[in-house]
Computed example of a mutant assay.
Amino acid sequence: MVCLHTGSILGWLFFLLLARQTSLDSQSVTPLSVILAMHIIRMLVVICMSGRDSNHISYKTVPKDTSWLFVGPEFHALHHVHPDRYMGSVVKFFDWIAGTAYSLRGKNVVITGASGAFGSAIIRRLQAEGVRDITALKFGTHWTHDDFSRVGNVLSQVQPDILILAHGTKGEDAMGANCNDTIRLIQLSLSHKQNVRQKNENAKKTLPEIWYVGSEIELHPAFGNPEMQRYLASKRAFLPYARALYDDSRVVYRHIVPAAFQSRMGRAIVSADWAAGVMMWWIRRGARYVPVTYTGMAYLNFLKFYFWVRPEYSWDNGTGSGIMEVHS
């Protein structure tokens, strides 16, 4: 309370001095006594509420924070989970600047595409952020296009906080790998989380997260290249599902849109490590749409993703039932 009043007094003196040094009327500055009285009234209200003001609400699991600017109880609750993060009290400007609007510390991660250029670069960044465990979910080992029976065992053993879908191909099975398999893996992850919540096992304070690696080809054409046409079709086929997840209150979905980077899928002017670094820069600032770009196209793609793509599908009861798979 002393700090609050001291800050208010200093702020009031600053604005009073500013008014006298400019053309502003110093009489228009709110009297200090009124400001202090408002703080005292607020303090008494908080005391009567046993310390719970508008930003202090007790949650079993912290709900999804949908405000990009203002601090609400959902954002502030995460400060009590991670005391060195989520520092803002009214707006998130400080957390944007300092990169403290998110924390990966202590989280369990399951990732597909871990052996790829971007997947391996993401893993290095996750390790630097202090995640607890990273488990690779491998195509051919844990799942195939027709068999996902071993995925559930991995999810049960790891209890992931985050599922990162970083696999991808431009081959003949692009639609199966990039869209259909992705949908099925998400269905299994949501179903697993739903079962855990119903049994009240290993209750987590934070919502589960799904990170999906998209592409700027969600916006630009394939220019007649057959491989790129397959890749384009598969990435765009997933967009309605992605948009539905973006709005789903039960999961934090991050849509990562990188420009081309150096990998086995093709040459580019930037490395996968650069792309992973830019991705993490945005995520540390709380971004759920994550533009990883040197072309600027990912910024334009946000307008398409947010305003044009319709979330036509429902991930019903955490299982995604009723969703029709897309086949090439």
Score class of each variant (00 low, 15 high):
residue 137 L to N: 00
residue 111 I to E: 01
residue 132 R to G: 13
residue 152 G to R: 06
residue 87 M to E: 10
residue 120 S to Q: 11
residue 179 C to G: 06
residue 178 N to R: 06
residue 89 S to P: 01
residue 125 R to A: 02
residue 126 L to V: 07
residue 129 E to W: 14
residue 191 S to W: 07
residue 132 R to W: 12
residue 192 H to I: 02
residue 127 Q to F: 04
residue 92 K to L: 04
residue 85 R to E: 11
residue 99 G to K: 09
residue 94 F to H: 10
residue 146 D to K: 15
residue 193 K to E: 10
residue 195 N to K: 05
residue 121 A to L: 04
residue 113 G to K: 02
residue 141 T to M: 00
residue 93 F to L: 11
residue 186 I to Y: 12
residue 88 G to V: 06
residue 192 H to M: 06
residue 140 G to H: 08
residue 101 A to K: 01
residue 201 E to S: 12
residue 194 Q to K: 14
residue 163 L to D: 04
residue 143 W to R: 02
residue 117 A to V: 14
residue 184 R to D: 00
residue 190 L to S: 12
residue 129 E to Y: 12
residue 172 E to D: 14
residue 112 T to V: 08
residue 96 W to I: 04
residue 134 I to S: 03
residue 160 P to N: 07
residue 126 L to C: 02
residue 126 L to H: 08
residue 94 F to R: 12
residue 168 G to S: 10
residue 187 Q to P: 07
residue 100 T to D: 03
residue 158 V to M: 15
residue 146 D to P: 00
residue 116 G to K: 10
residue 140 G to I: 09
residue 174 A to G: 08
residue 97 I to R: 05
residue 89 S to L: 02
residue 159 Q to L: 14
residue 134 I to W: 05
residue 115 S to I: 09
residue 166 A to V: 13
residue 142 H to S: 04
residue 167 H to L: 15
residue 125 R to E: 05
residue 156 S to L: 01
residue 160 P to A: 07
residue 112 T to I: 03
residue 151 V to I: 11
residue 133 D to F: 09
residue 169 T to E: 05
residue 113 G to W: 05
residue 108 N to L: 14
residue 115 S to M: 07
residue 100 T to N: 08
residue 186 I to M: 15
residue 190 L to G: 13
residue 122 I to N: 11
residue 113 G to A: 02
residue 113 G to P: 07
residue 92 K to W: 03
residue 121 A to W: 08
residue 152 G to T: 10
residue 125 R to S: 05
residue 123 I to N: 13
residue 168 G to D: 06
residue 97 I to Q: 05
residue 102 Y to C: 03
residue 194 Q to N: 11
residue 192 H to N: 02
residue 172 E to R: 13
residue 140 G to L: 08
residue 107 K to E: 13
residue 145 H to S: 09
residue 195 N to Q: 09
residue 175 M to A: 02
residue 183 I to Q: 03
residue 98 A to K: 15
residue 201 E to R: 08
residue 163 L to I: 08
residue 118 F to C: 10
residue 193 K to S: 08
residue 201 E to W: 12
residue 119 G to K: 05
residue 191 S to N: 13
residue 156 S to I: 02
residue 142 H to K: 02
residue 127 Q to R: 12
residue 171 G to N: 03
residue 153 N to E: 10
residue 122 I to D: 06
residue 177 A to W: 00
residue 184 R to N: 05
residue 167 H to N: 13
residue 172 E to Q: 13
